[in-house]
Design a binder for these strands. Structure first.
Length: 651
RNA sequence: CGGGGCGUAGCUUAGCCUGGUAGAGCGCUACGUUCGGGACGUAGAGGUCGUGGGUUCGAAUCCCACCGCCCCGACCA
């Protein structure tokens, strides 16, 4: 009998990110708990889906409110020693997460509620944008990755998932890996299942755990080895369709972050190891962010530093005429740009050519920059090498004929020009016109080196790192820089993966065509931390309404007084009817402890019921993000709470 | 993976330099007094001082190796 009703509940309950968490295995007494923990998914979405009463109607109110004494929120007075930034400290202090090991965290009950809120909002926005949810394995056959286009680069951050059995000797190459992302799984799937243009476009997504063996996990959930991510993959018949899918996702992301209550800005980004043609990152501005955003408010330009360009080199710049014959001069012991700037040479850094040597897919190539510029290594991605790294001196000498410090790219001075995969010069070297560079002879440099006449340039490109203050391409105004946390990323991939895995379809003319793909990610767990980083004060977290683990905290100062608990339950029920998730602090703690904890865990709306207030016939209503406390007569309390909840949820 | 720092009770840590009884605060347990912004008293429980080796009569302390964690750099959502 009990089992029957539980099954019913399970089917009524909103789907969860863990589809296997079936209720039918739970004993009857736990069924209420199940409903309680899962109910928020539709409650929080009240304004998007069915009104709450439809849900609450199934169960007697107040069935859902959580009693703090029976929940589990281990708060800490002190910050853990290993936490550096505010959001990391608060995650731990507010009892949202606990560390297992570097970059590996348990989501505690309160933290999991936030994760569920975020995943549900994400799910709703993506569904609204036409994306379709599925669930893929996280253990991947390594073979699949070996077939893909980025095995060499991606394996560095991948966990291998071979047998841990003692009898079986570890193979040199992994048999299985843990999925860091799922292009290699979804593309073969779509290849097998979709063969007609009639089935396109499609956009599949999942919200699941990702595994990346980050070289350096950091700041709690900010860069973890195991994290929760929404990843989506769009498949279109052609480029126009792919661009439409891309923009639909961009719009969905914008709605998602708006709903979460975090400011996230779309910025142009480098495509990195993903490959593909263009991409945007969604950045939450924060000092502790890992990325620099180069932007100009006037023109609206915003780009990741890896991608950013400036108008430093005018489009109509004329090439300088040679200033004289190339002349070699001795520079004993001078092996740095800075040393050549000193007397007696006195060559300013922006008159020097800097020559860097890299190995790209096994072959050396040169990059020429102004002495005053820094290489933006990510920009080398545009050269098309699968893997590149700086060359070692041992690799440089046989090719160029000199050690680092005396290198150059002047025609005729390179010892083995045929060995080079190319000489790539940054546009800005054209600003030098005639300058100084290494002679490929230890202890000698060349002057009067003319860019067009003397340098053996294969191709000009954008390789330098933009500096704040340089003119914006669009407006000419100075560019500014600011740090940000990357919470989402969208890529238009093109046909790179479709080609590798043969994902083709038949078009209306019976012709086989490659699908055009896009891929999309939102760091759900990172977003949780980014929200805290953006929304906290000296006392704790200040949750935005929609992301809060509970929206309303009923703080009962005298839980031993039956009348106080009765009022609390009435108000909790009123708040729930209005669509809020409610936590009732019924602990036998002193008021100070309760207030401190309330501020720490940051529930948006606090209702305080105390013996003092009850004597006056009032309760108190306070917003976490405001200072003042409203005294509300008991008779009006339920109605006022309903109004406040409506206000909090943005009506 | 390079550079720097740190591992002492569940948490925050003192002690290490100069070797000789492992201490405090928070938290926890019990009792009492308190009770609107992290109370107080009394009594308790709780420690392989990261691991292994070495030096020494004797090591948390000195030496070596390893492991783990944190920060800075290169990569990512």
């Amino acid at each position: 009998m009990a089992t029957e009703s539980i099954r019913l509940n399970a089917s009524e309950a909103p789907s969860d990110i863990f589809p296997l968490r079936s209720c039918s295995l739970l004993p009857a007494p736990f069924s209420a708990a199940y409903r309680t923990t899962n109910r928020f998914t539709s409650v929080n979405a009240a304004r998007h889906v069915a009104p709450c009463s439809a849900v609450t109607g199934l169960f007697a109110c107040p069935a859902f409110m959580k009693l703090w004494s029976q929940f589990f929120i281990p708060t800490l007075k002190e910050s853990p020693a290993d936490a550096e930034i505010a959001s990391h400290k608060l995650l731990v202090r507010a009892g949202l997460v606990r560390k297992l090991s570097g970059g590996l965290y348990t989501y505690m009950p309160l933290g999991l509620r936030v994760i569920h809120k975020l995943t549900q909002m994400c799910r709703e926005e993506l569904d609204a944008a036409g994306a379709i949810e599925l669930w893929m394995p996280h253990v991947h056959p390594a073979e699949l990755w070996q077939q893909g286009p980025r095995w060499a680069a991606a394996r560095e951050i991948m966990f291998r998932a071979d047998s841990a059995g003692e009898g079986k000797r570890a193979s040199r190459e992994p048999e299985f890996v843990l999925g860091p992302t799922h292009e290699e799984v979804i593309t073969p799937l779509v290849k097998a299942e979709i063969t007609s243009y009639r089935d396109l476009p499609k956009n599949f997504y999942q919200i699941a755990t990702k595994f990346r063996n980050e070289i350096r996990p950091r700041y709690g959930l900010m860069r973890a080895r195991e994290f929760i991510m929404m990843d989506a993959y769009s498949f279109d018949a052609n480029d126009d369709g792919a661009i439409r899918s891309y923009h639909a996702m961009k719009t969905a992301y914008e709605s998602f972050f708006r709903r979460v209550g975090v400011q996230a800005i779309a910025v142009e980004a480098d495509t990195g190891v993903m490959g593909g043609s263009y991409s945007h990152e969604f950045m939450v501005p924060a000092e502790v962010g890992d990325d620099d955003v180069i932007y100009n408010e006037a023109s609206g330009y915003a780009a990741n530093r890896e991608k950013a360009t400036s108008g430093l080199v005018p489009a109509d710049l004329a090439d300088a005429a040679p200033a004289g014959a190339v002349e070699e001069f001795a520079t004993p012991g001078v092996v740095t740009i800075a040393a050549l700037e000193q007397a007696p040479y006195s060559v300013p850094a922006d008159r020097q050519f800097k020559t860097l040597v890299f190995i790209g897919d096994g072959k050396p190539f040169l990059v020429i920059l102004r002495g005053s510029d820094e290489l933006e290594e990510a920009k080398l991605g545009s050269l098309g090498f699968g893997l590149h790294r700086p060359a070692t001196p041992d690799e440089i000498v046989p090719v160029l004929g000199a050690k680092p410090g005396s290198l150059g790219a002047v025609k005729g001075t390179i010892k083995e020009p045929a060995a080079l995969a190319g000489v790539f010069a940054d546009h800005a070297v054209r600003l030098i016109g005639n300058g100084t560079t290494g002679a490929n002879k230890d202890g000698f440099h060349l002057r009067n080196v003319n860019v067009t006449r003397d340098l053996a340039v294969t191709k000009f490109g954008d390789f330098r790192r933009v500096r704040p203050g340089e003119p914006d391409v669009k407006s000419g105004q100075p560019l500014q820089v600011r740090r940000g946390i990357e919470v989402g990323h969208i890529f238009k991939l093109g046909t790179k993966y479709a080609e590798k895995f043969g994902a083709a379809y038949t078009d209306g003319q019976k012709q086989s065509q490659l699908m055009v793909m896009g891929c999309y990610g939102i760091g759900i767990s990172r977003t949780m931390q980014a929200v805290i980083e953006q929304s906290h004060d000296a006392d704790g977290i200040v949750w935005p309404w929609n992301s809060a683990p509970f929206q309303v905290l009923v703080c009962v100062l005298d839980p031993q007084v039956p009348e106080a608990m009765e009022v609390a339950k009435k108000l909790a029920a009123a708040a729930e009817r209005a669509g809020a998730d409610v936590l009732v602090d019924d602990r036998a703690e002193r008021p100070g402890v309760k207030f401190k904890d309330a501020d720490l865990i940051g529930i948006p709306l606090r209702l305080t019921i105390g013996g003092k207030g009850l004597k006056e016939g009032i309760i108190e209503l306070k917003w976490r993000n405001q200072k003042d406390v409203a005294k509300v007569p008991l008779a009006e309390a339920e109605a006022r709470v309903a109004v406040a909840v409506a206000e909090g949820s943005g009506r």
